Amino acid sequence: MIRGVIGIATAVLFALMPEAMTVGYALVTLIMLAVWAIVTGALEIAAAVSLRKAIVGEWLMGLSGAASVVLGIIIIVLLVVDPLVTLPSAAWVIGSYAIIAGAILLALGLRLRRSGPVGAAT
Rank of each mutant, 00 (worst) to 15 (best):
T22N: 10
A103Q: 06
I100A: 07
G7S: 14
A34P: 00
V5T: 08
A67C: 01
A101T: 04
I45M: 07
I76P: 00
G102M: 02
V23T: 13
V39R: 00
A54L: 14
L71E: 09
L112K: 05
V77P: 04
A107D: 09
L43G: 06
A66L: 15
W36C: 10
W36P: 03
F14M: 12
P83W: 14
V35H: 03
L87P: 00
A37E: 00
L110C: 01
E58S: 15
V49L: 15
I8V: 15
Y97M: 05
E44T: 09
L60N: 04
A15E: 13
Y25V: 15
S89L: 15
T86E: 08
I73S: 09
V49M: 15
S68G: 14
L84E: 12
E19R: 15
V118M: 15
E58G: 13
L43W: 04
S68R: 09
V85A: 15
V77M: 06
L63G: 06
F14S: 14
A54M: 13
V56T: 10
V39H: 01
A46D: 12
G57M: 08
A67Y: 00
R3P: 04
T22P: 05
V85P: 04
A37V: 01
T22S: 14
A34Q: 02
L79R: 04
A90N: 07
A101F: 05
A91K: 12
S115M: 00
A54S: 12
V77T: 09
G57H: 09
R52G: 08
T29M: 13
A26I: 00
A34D: 03
L108Y: 05
W92Y: 12
